[in-house]
Design a protein around this nucleic acid. Structure first.
Length: 949
RNA sequence: GGGCGUAUAGCUCAGUGGUAGAGCACUACAUUGACAUUGUAGGGGUCGGGAGUUCAACUCUCUCUACGCCCA
């Protein structure tokens, strides 16, 4: 029994209902213990996130694959969860506090972290509801969070194991410091932008009366960051630069600070650039850091002149004048900073070399500096200029971890799709830098490292200023580290270990006071881990790792596929591969599919600041989730960004409506759901033909899905449904719904619903259930088409002959201005066997579609007529009184010209001996056939023209 | 500076070593019969420029131009 469908298709009335039904009945992951596994993990969206159009694309593609594999009977698992997103989340909560004139530091760490959890409970994870609206069939029953206890344990274990393997180490070096968020960030989180800046030229006076060969008593240096001169530690010149050869090893006296610094040789100084001499600030510039090290300055001795907010602080040698202390590094909010003051003072000292330029009028103009475009680093979250800052941080030796993923891609264990991304992947992996994983935040996975006093001889000494000089203990908990500590400190007479959660806790405890002489105190590292360090474990920690016997891990790891945007190839994908291969000894997924960005209609990047963001939920409201999903699939060719196009989404909404109405029509003719996977027995050509078409469509669809060609897959099912099924099959069988046809039509419609389901889950499920009572056999867990029938060549030829005839008649009538509804008779004096059969068996269809009442097998009467071709047959349709002969002549002449041109070109090719000898045999065969066809066409049309006079 | 990618119908995009396709838009016609969220038919492209390889290039190679992205 079918259930009646409403006259118009309203997506919003069915989506919620079906989604709840699927989820409530556990249909996203039915029990299939013996089935072959298929696994995808969803890139965990940020807990602060809401669904944007990029998520819509990424998740639609994943859902298509998961629904497809589920229909194919696999134990399809789509892991879903949320990322705690350290920086982003802390920012959200801090911003909310700011609105209430409150701030993080008004609270203890524990209190603040609790507030973040409260916020998460209240408004975190909005996106999970939005993914449901898109129809995504994840396994929500196992939804995870990267701060869940089991996941946190995996993160801890990873850190401890990596540390013990020497893959994680602590180092003092320059980091990318975000002075707004007051945390280190990794080099991937830095975005370089070209901004307008200035280039200043200074004189650094030579010390001790030394002069250059040309007599000058100073060295000229240039900089885009004058303020850093307060921490200059050298001037570098190129070893081959003869201008400075005589002063290498001598000193300059820095203006303002009066610091004496050496002139050193270093390849970094480019003789071609400016004066050829460069100032060296090892504590505040990545290049200078390396120069400084080469010049023998240890990282610990490098001068630092900025605090965590990039305000000037006193350097270790105490030479920064008081008036600078507390100034911001440069002008901010209209207030001059250290940069402006340095320039002003140097100018007053006569040590600023002006930049001479000319105005438009040709007058000479003296400027303090030369205008320049400067590549400037910005933090991707905080949005302020990044400060290279000398700190102790935790690093992952990424270079060691990179080898195996590269090998996996080379040997095919990991397939990157599209392949063009391989080069980018290799380029990054080959040049990979140490990965800074510590973050100065409160929200995140706390680093499991504790520091203790340094042991020297039989004494211990506490140093709270930095940690590099401390004893370091890394372990899974306090007990673990205190055992480690006991071993070290018991040797020098300390048999008690007290462990503190922070340096402050240690101090407030009073443990260092008298009375605790035998107790040694440890304090925990305050920092948390980079969020990506934890999300790198996602493909396996979500499945139970590190318990390698966990059933899910056993069955579903490695994952089959990962789908992500190319923008997180380095951030996430590469790190999953690095961590995964080290920890599990296997590539985390077999295939890595990278898709592009969804852009605004004009091709620009969507961004909140531009205000051109398209809300996927708005599109769902307007056109339905199915239409949006189909759009995403149809536009996803491998390797190209997708431009948003509402009209196209609308077009796919229309497609859903078309299917809806076709189903309605079927129902009104007593066509219901099929009861067999196997195609019904069919005798009529039309029915045999459509079954064969389903077989062909299925094969093409499976091939497209195997290659992850989402666009091809979507187009195949679209055209089969609309063109083949609706426009031809239904039209051909209309008015002739015998039992066989009803059975076949019902079966074909079911195959469409199944094949379309991964793309348009809602409307297909609705129609599936409307077609029959299928409460126990919902479409989401139905079976993918599986039948033995294949293409029937005779039926195909016959139906294609009918279609050819119909199209030809319609086209000719249209061109000649004959009303489409006009019924006519035709003459086919010498029909081919195919034509004779087709005519005999399909007279009703021919009359209805081609509007030809009778096809006589006698000679056509003289007089005005139009001539059309169907297959290799010619039909003459008298049009006495209906048409103007000149119009028919013009139409025929046009066709003649086209065929003659084609025939001539083919003839030329066939008479070329080189072609006949060297071309592939089928190419020659095809050319011959085409030539025969066009020659015949020429003859036919010529005859017709002759008949018309 | 290095790397990658893209240039195909008015627009958005597929595509194959054998002379080009889709959707939308456009034009004409149709229409109370599943569907105007429709049907039928049609117009429209020297496949960015140039050179080369080949019997044959939109497709392969080189080069130029334009645009985009990533890295330094």
């Amino acid at each position: 029994m079918t259930s009646e469908l409403s006259k118009t298709f309203d997506p919003s009335s069915i989506e919620q209902r079906w989604y709840n039904h699927w989820e409530d009945n556990g249909l996203f992951r039915p029990e299939r213990p013996d089935a072959q596994p298929f696994t995808i993990v969803n890139p965990p969206p940020n807990v602060t996130g809401s669904l944007h159009i990029g998520h819509a694309l990424d998740n639609t593609l994943q859902d298509i694959v998961i629904r497809y594999e589920r229909l194919r009977g696999k134990d399809a698992l789509w892991v879903v969860g949320i990322d705690h997103a350290g920086i982003a989340t802390q920012m959200v909560v801090e911003r909310q506090m700011e609105e209430k004139q409150d701030k993080r530091t008004n609270y203890s760490r524990e209190e603040f972290v609790q507030k973040v959890w409260d916020w998460k409970a209240e408004s975190g994870g909005t996106i999970t509801g939005q993914l449901r609206r898109l129809g995504c069939s994840m396994d929500w029953s196992r939804e995870q969070f990267t701060m869940d206890e089991h996941f946190s344990k995996a993160v801890l274990k990873t850190f401890v194991d990596f540390y013990n393997d020497g893959l994680i180490y602590r180092d003092k070096r320059l980091v990318n410091w975000d002075p707004k968020l007051k945390t280190a960030i990794s080099d991937l989180e830095v975005e370089t932008q070209d901004i307008k800046g200035q280039f200043w030229h200074f004189k650094y006076p030579l010390a001790d009366g030394v002069t250059l060969a040309d007599g000058r008593d100073y060295i000229e240096v240039a900089t885009t960051r004058p303020e850093t001169m307060l921490a200059d530690m050298a001037v570098a010149v190129h070893p081959t630069d003869e201008r400075y050869a005589s002063v290498v090893g001598k000193e300059v006296v820095l203006p303002i600070t009066g610091r004496r610094v050496k002139i050193v040789e270093d390849e970094h100084a480019d003789p071609e650039l400016g004066s050829g001499a460069v100032k060296i600030t090892p504590g505040h510039d990545f290049n200078d850091f390396e120069v400084g090290k080469r010049a023998g300055i240890a990282a610990g001795d490098m001068l630092n002149m900025l605090d965590s907010e990039a305000n000037v602080c006193q350097t270790a040698d105490g030479l920064v004048p008081d008036e600078y202390l507390g100034l911001h590094r440069f002008k901010r909010d209209g207030t001059d900073g250290a940069r402006e003051l340095v320039v002003k003072q140097l100018k007053e000292l006569g040590l600023l070399i002006p930049h001479i330029t000319k105005t438009k009028k040709g007058e000479e103009l003296e400027l303090d500096s030369e205008p320049r475009t400067i590549a400037t680093p910005f933090g991707d979250r905080g949005g302020v200029v990044i400060e290279p800052w000398l700190t102790d941080q935790w690093y992952v030796d990424a270079e060691k971890l990179a080898a195996r993923p590269m090998e996996a891609v080379r040997n095919g264990d990991i397939e990157i799709i599209p392949q063009s991304w391989e080069k980018t992947f290799f380029h990054w992996m080959e040049n990979i830098q140490p990965w800074c994983i510590s973050r100065q935040l409160w929200w995140g996975h706390r680093i499991p490292a504790w520091f203790g006093p340094k042991v020297s001889g039989d004494k211990i000494s506490y140093d709270f200023s930095g940690q590099i000089g401390c004893e370091t203990f890394v372990g899974i908990d306090e007990q673990d580290v205190s055992l480690q500590a006991e071993k070290i400190y018991s040797k020098v007479g300390f048999n008690q270990v007290a462990v503190f959660d922070s340096y402050e806790d240690l101090i407030t405890s009073g443990i260092l006071a008298k009375g605790h002489e035998k107790t040694v105190a440890l304090w925990r590292d305050e920092d948390v881990l980079d969020t990506w360090f934890s999300s790198g474990l996602w493909p396996f920690a979500t499945l139970g790792w590190p318990d390698e016997n966990a059933p899910l891990y056993q069955k579903h790891y490695p994952n089959d596929l990962l789908i992500s945007g190319f923008d997180i190839l380095f951030f996430w994908d590469a790190r999953m591969a690095m961590q995964g291969m080290k920890l599990t000894d296997q590539a985390p997924w077999k295939r890595l599919y990278l898709h592009g960005l969804v852009r605004a209609a004009d091709g620009s990047k969507m961004s909140k600041s531009k205000g051109n963001v398209v809300d996927p939920l708005g599109l769902i409201d307007q056109y339905g989730a199915d239409a949006l999903r189909f759009f995403m699939a149809a536009m996803e060719s491998q390797g190209r960004d997708i431009k948003m196009d509402d009209e196209r989404v609308k077009g796919y909404r229309n497609f859903a409506t078309k299917l809806w109405n076709a189903t309605r029509f079927c129902q009104s003719n007593g066509i219901g759901g099929s009861t067999t996977l196997e195609a019904p027995a069919a005798t009529s050509a039309v029915n045999r033909w459509i079954i064969g078409e389903v077989a062909e469509t299925l094969a093409k669809l499976d091939a497209a899905m195997a290659d992850l060609r989402f666009d091809a897959a979507a187009n195949i099912i679209y055209h089969f449904t609309w063109d083949t099924f609706c426009d031809w099959y239904i039209e051909l069988v209309k008015g002739n719904f015998d039992d066989e046809t009803k059975a076949v039509a019902g079966w074909v419609l079911d195959q469409i619903l199944v094949m379309l389901h991964p793309f348009m889950p809602f409307v297909t499920e609705e129609l599936w259930n409307a077609q029959a009572d299928r409460a126990n056999y919902p479409l989401i867990t139905a079976k993918w088409p599986e039948f033995s029938a294949s293409v029937d060549a005779d039926a195909k030829a016959e139906v294609e002959w009918l279609i050819g005839l119909t199209s030809a008649v319609r086209g000719a009538k249209n061109e000649l201005g004959v009303p489409p509804g006009q019924k006519l008779e035709a003459y086919c004096p010498a029909p081919s066997a195919l034509a004779a059969d087709a005519i005999a068996r399909n007279s009703a269809a021919i009359e209805r579609l081609a509007r030809i009442t009778t096809i006589h097998t006698s000679e056509a009467p003289d007089g005005a007529a139009m001539q059309i071709g169907a297959g290799s047959d010619t039909l003459i349709i008298p049009l006495e009184g209906l048409v103007d002969i000149d119009a028919e002549k013009a139409r025929l002449n046009k066709a003649l010209e086209a065929s003659a041109k084609e025939a001539k070109s083919l003839e030329g090719r066939l008479s070329n001996a080189n072609f006949v000898e060297r071309a592939k045999p089928d190419a020659v065969e095809k050319a011959k056939a085409d030539f025969a066809h066009h020659s015949a066409e020429v003859e036919r049309i010529t005859a017709a023209l002759a008949r018309l006079g």
